[in-house]
Design a protein around this nucleic acid. Sequence first.
DNA 1: GAAGCAATTTAGGCTTACCTAAATAAATTA
DNA 2: TAATTTATTTAGGTAAGCCTAAATTGCTTC
Lengths: 228, 228
Amino acid sequence: MTTRRVNLNTESVDNYLKAIFALGGPEEERVSSTALAERLGVAPASITNMLQKLAASPKSLVEYESRRGVRLSPAGRLRALEVLRHHRLLETFLYEVLDYPIEEVHDEAERLEHFISERFEERIDAKLGRPKFDPHGHCIPALDGKMPAQHSKSLADIKEDGKFIVDSVADGDAALLKRLKAHGIIPGARLLVSSSSHEEFILRAGRAAQAFCLPRSLACAVRLRSSD
Amino acid sequence: MTTRRVNLNTESVDNYLKAIFALGGPEEERVSSTALAERLGVAPASITNMLQKLAASPKSLVEYESRRGVRLSPAGRLRALEVLRHHRLLETFLYEVLDYPIEEVHDEAERLEHFISERFEERIDAKLGRPKFDPHGHCIPALDGKMPAQHSKSLADIKEDGKFIVDSVADGDAALLKRLKAHGIIPGARLLVSSSSHEEFILRAGRAAQAFCLPRSLACAVRLRSSD
DNA sequence: GAAGCAATTTAGGCTTACCTAAATAAATTA
DNA sequence: TAATTTATTTAGGTAAGCCTAAATTGCTTC
Ligand SMILES: [Mn+2]
Ligand SMILES: [Mn+2]
Ligand SMILES: [Mn+2]
Ligand SMILES: [Mn+2]
């Protein structure tokens, strides 16, 4: 009856923790197997399997009760934030130092985040001057896992026309990101939002820029803050 | 009897090809299972297993005859050189751009070489100004796999005292590399070689530097060219 | 309160890349 | 040449991380 100890320092475990962190939201609610399966592109049975393994391990990275969803333990949260830090530092580095176009940084960072050393992390952080935000406008967690609360709101929740500042753009959809960029919709830009219909938003960034029609289904890709 | 096709784009396959390339030497001689097992830190049975897989695959990265050793096919050679290019570009990048100490670049590059994209490769190559040599003095293969012939000779083969230029230093042994660096023994340095005994070499780099005694067993870590 | 449904888990497999132990082939020595 | 040693391969496992198909559970709905 030897308790066989499993190796939890794998790319796969990192990705599970990151997904639980992201889906749990700021309230860190319990995340269902189905939601995880969908996000990770994996069969639900594989999720159950991994969660049981994670929960059973002495490191206890997650709190998991059968059929009641999962959430991160403090240790699991810290690890998720560590990987998120790698990801966002890498994105910033690829963008600032290696002149990647913004829509290509995400995929590269998604791979490399699991393999860089603490030294590499430290060196790019220093090279970049300890940045606080990545090129999409997302906050980079500190070394100790601290991250200031965000005060942005999703474009999807905007009910009335108005002027805003673009806070951040989602990093996952390269094609959309490229179109947003082409219309000047990048973090920090002034944005005029109007909604002609229930179907879409009309966005106008800066002054000279041409208007951009964004379907409501994609509106959650843009986050705003007030332009005072 | 379905011929199940195997995935050959793995870190492991890369490492096998690199090891065959390195052990085959400039003549690309056949490499034995035992030599590979030793180099890769793996049981001989695992070598046989992988070589059979590589040889059986339609891509045919290696030529392998049972009990007669293995060598790279043209495709396998190209892949090995591609990975070597990644490795040496990464080392140069870590050294030049991220200010790594020379003895730490190897391990980081050894991991990352398998995961960077062609874009990453291109960007660091451009950033570095298309370098021809890595920080250890090793030649960086071109994109098409071409690499000029080397004209250096191993310190281990030096029979008489004399003056030389350090051509390159081995990248694997971090502790040795650090000591060599401390005594000014780095690629491009002028080096006075004398051998007081059969046991060791006495090396003096530049002018003011203190002499350094290197056991003959480690002499293969330093390669020289004539100082005309 | 039983039936139906959706979410989740269990059971049984697969692939990759390792391992050890046993068998075999080749080379060396006597 | 026969015996011994060494190198290599075969045979049979293991662990991770995934899969599909078949239970099972918990909740709705009639
Ligand atoms: Mn880190
Ligand atoms: Mn980002
Ligand atoms: Mn490449
Ligand atoms: Mn090198």
